[in-house]
Design a protein around this nucleic acid. Sequence first.
DNA 1: CAGAGATATCCGAACGTTCGGTCACATAGT
DNA 2: ACTATGTGACCGAACGTTCGGATATCTCTG
Lengths: 200, 200
Amino acid sequence: MDGRLARGEQTRRSILRRAADIASVEGLDGLTIGRLATDLALSKSSVFAHFGSKEDLQLAAIAHAEDVFRDLVIRPALKAPDGLPRLTAMCEHWLDYSRSRAFPGGCFFAGVIAEFDAREGRVHDAVRHGREKWIDLLTGLAHKAVTLGHLPPDTDPAQIAFELDALARAGNMEAVLTGSDAAYDRAIRGIRARLGVDPE
Amino acid sequence: MDGRLARGEQTRRSILRRAADIASVEGLDGLTIGRLATDLALSKSSVFAHFGSKEDLQLAAIAHAEDVFRDLVIRPALKAPDGLPRLTAMCEHWLDYSRSRAFPGGCFFAGVIAEFDAREGRVHDAVRHGREKWIDLLTGLAHKAVTLGHLPPDTDPAQIAFELDALARAGNMEAVLTGSDAAYDRAIRGIRARLGVDPE
DNA sequence: CAGAGATATCCGAACGTTCGGTCACATAGT
DNA sequence: ACTATGTGACCGAACGTTCGGATATCTCTG
């Protein structure tokens, strides 16, 4: 077992990368096995065989997008000092991740949540669970910021997590919709004001 | 030309009502002519004939949803006194419209915007234009509230419109995703705090 | 080290279904 | 009788899925 990846694993990853990119624009339903096969110069059956069903492909794409999100947003932000700096860093990395178009359709989850929020099934559950973890993370950071005295003692951590997420998500959506980066400035201004942080 | 509707117009409206309901859950792409025909006990060709193409059906569904939104949110809110009361009324009617599930998938536009924000074409343009009108409306109300002295004179109307929309939209999404109404309280609390209005 | 055998990986063809869309024809309303 | 409205049969394309077999890649033996 050397460090190299087995051939199948490489293919699987290339499929997932492409799948997440497509899904961020066309949605997880718009994601198509035939389209994937064409784009990657593979056969439909080969793409299919790696996942066993379209639903499992969708779930794998979500898991992959979560890995990307962890690498680009969560892990870097956790390097900031605990409390308010870490909370603001999390929001700013979130916006950078959207702005950089790590996924061509903006934030992968913003699109997928809206697609599956009102449905049922495994994909809905996975999306919902992923979002819960994210909100819990933000809430925990806000709580820590309160206990450290970085935020007023009467601050409700869950409420502030909700509002920060709302502002960031709105920035992503408007930026993608209009093709302009101006919405990111709106989002960051709202976030900084809400946290009582001086605008740079 | 008496007051009654022509037969075809009645059918057309029933199609659009159902189409908007389906699209709010499954998306405008998940909306299917065959599904519509089955649900309404019509033939596919009849449904199709009313619109000429699927894209035109999607555009008509958007226009219909805008009518509903105008009736349930905008018109009632405009009865409130000008300035801050009207702005808060707009937000609250927005949340009530989402909570009441006028569309089974929550706010029609929240879903459709996320579906088409990163795409191109007529549907994207229609969605974007509709959202522009909505934001302009909110911005105008905020501006009026500032000039009337209901909000601090240094308030940026466009910024506050962005933030109010962000909070309301987040409330809708989380409520639909989790099936709980608690998110609406979060949204309204954030909105009232942002506007400096006392919670009731 | 070579080569046989097992195992991953991938392909091509086909399946049944559903999609948006077309068309000739029937029916209903005035 | 004429027009608006709706039907039913049908098309080609794309969908997810299945399957048998070809082709790499790895493993184990001699």
